[in-house]
Amino acid sequence: MFEARVAQAEILKKILDSVRELVEQGNLDCSGTGISLQAMDSSHVSLVALLLKSEGFERYRCDRSINLGINMQSLGKIVKTAGNHDAITLSSEDKGDVLGLMFESTEQDKVSNYEIKLMDVDAEQLAIPVAEYSVCVRMPSAEFARITRDLSTIGDSVLISCTKDGVQFSTTGDTGSGSIVLRQSSSVDDEKKAVVIEVQEPISLSFATKFLVQFSKSAALNESVTLNLGDGVPLMVEYPMKEMGYVRFYLAPKLSN
């Protein structure tokens, strides 16, 4: 038996919004420690890794590990029908063929039950290697969204160059070019508005704009985002979710020909 209850539907809505455009279907791997999901796009350029820790749930029970193959669009559509403050309980029998969803209003005067058919999803969990990153940039997630969106009007690649002085996002396209530099915040009243740049080695890497734009749509998950860059390893973009876990996106760089 698997059962997981979140006190507020809002967090699940945000999580599904952030991954469902990149992930059509995936396996929710449920174990005693929580729920995880990994999904790569068909060209193996990007990967989404989601972790929802058991302690982030109001109630959590998973007697034996199970994989729930889910169409993320279908799940997203159903979860969207819940009120933001509704409690949501996900459940599945050990050898069941559906994922059950129960929404309970805060007044407990409305209870909705849905079932989503499970599917066979051919995807195995990868052991994501621990990477050595040369640079870690923490910045407001809304700023990252703005920068990727603004540069996407010009070019299909964004070069991210980072030194101790700042991080530069630049692009070139048929119509021209553009670049935006963010400096490390000198004094910050609000942690979440800070730009913090940690540099072991300066680095410049180029990435496909369209994926960065997709990732940056997760801004609702956290006011801050971290970009981790290293030579020979994928970019890792992380949106932490307090005690709940994280959504991480991995993106292979563009390589010089």
Partner: peptide, 14 residues
Amino acid sequence: KTKQGNLNSFFGIK
């Protein structure tokens, strides 16, 4: 000129 890399080598996928 650049070409898009992939994640295969990072994850040891052949």
